[in-house]
């Protein structure tokens, strides 16, 4: 049994990477491996907004990640710098930047690149989806 982490940089709506990452995550969990953390970076952080409202016949990637995280106790972490500049903020970042609202989905956390470094040190494999 191995411990994995994933690095996801894919834009949710202009590439397939988020779908590939979710499928890879589900499969490794089905095989009995551990998934320590999914770190969202660059355009990948866009999936962490709780305000996505895709058409009913399309997959809601945010909810797909959230379901996986809640059922399997997986950390979903969005890079604070990548998120702030793309308008993905939690309550404390909104306050710190004097913004009028926040939009981070509750299944996600905002943190720094240290979380990616730590995931690389603590996982047997880190797989990137971009």
């Amino acid at each position: 049994m191995a411990t994995f982490s994933l690095l996801v940089t894919a834009n949710p709506y202009s590439s397939q990477g988020q779908f590939s990452a979710i499928e890879f995550a589900r499969t490794l969990l089905e095989q009995g491996h551990n998934l320590l953390r999914v770190f969202f970076y660059a355009d990948g952080v866009l999936v962490a907004s709780r305000l996505h409202a895709p058409p009913a016949d399309e997959i809601n990637l945010t909810k797909s990640w959230a379901k996986l995280a809640i059922e399997k106790d997986i950390e979903l972490i969005a890079c604070v710098t990548a998120a702030n500049k793309r308008g993905i903020v939690n309550a404390s970042e909104a306050e710190r930047n004097a913004l009028t609202g926040d939009n981070l989905d509750p299944a996600f956390e905002i943190s720094g690149l240290g979380q990616l470094t730590e995931a690389m040190l603590e996982s047997d494999r880190v797989i990137t989806f971009g």
Binding site: A2, F24, T27, H33, I127
Partner: peptide, 19 residues
């Protein structure tokens, strides 16, 4: 398939996604 994809990442020492 995806199960084999996961296995391949373990068979090889590391994986490099060429972006």
């Amino acid at each position: 398939d995806y199960p084999r994809f996961v296995e391949l990442t373990l068979t090889f020492d590391k994986s490099i996604t060429w972006l």
